[in-house]
């Protein structure tokens, strides 16, 4: 199992390293991630939201529904933890 896991992880890593040949250079200002959507956020964030911190304005203003969905995820995880770790006293003994 150990050698099999090592072989599988090395093969996956080799494929990913082969994939980095086509990636843009690290820290390239003209990479596709930096020229497509984000210039609009950088230019309009002061006019539209009057917030100096761009990360906060995008997080809470432009993409507020994303943060709302994240709250749902946290609530679901908390409920799952409570349901899993609850000590079942009488009902659990009767069921077992």
């Amino acid at each position: 199992m150990k050698t099999l896991g090592l072989i599988v992880s090395i093969i996956v890593g080799a494929f990913l390293m082969y994939g980095t040949i086509d990636m843009p250079d690290w820290g390239d200002p003209n990479s596709p991630a930096s020229i497509h959507v984000s210039p609009r956020y950088i230019k309009k964030t002061e006019v539209e939201t009057a917030t100096p911190n761009m990360v906060t304005s995008v997080l809470a203003d432009y993409r507020g529904y994303d943060t709302l969905g994240e709250t749902t995820v946290i609530f679901t995880a908390g409920m799952a933890c409570i349901l899993l770790l609850r000590r079942r006293k009488e009902a659990g003994k009767a069921r077992r």
């Binding site: 991630a33 984000s38 956020y41 990360v55």
Partner: peptide
């Protein structure tokens, strides 16, 4: 200038 600031979208 757009090139003056880092890209905020992946941070969010």
């Amino acid at each position: 200038q757009v090139a003056q600031y880092l890209n905020p979208l992946p941070h969010v």
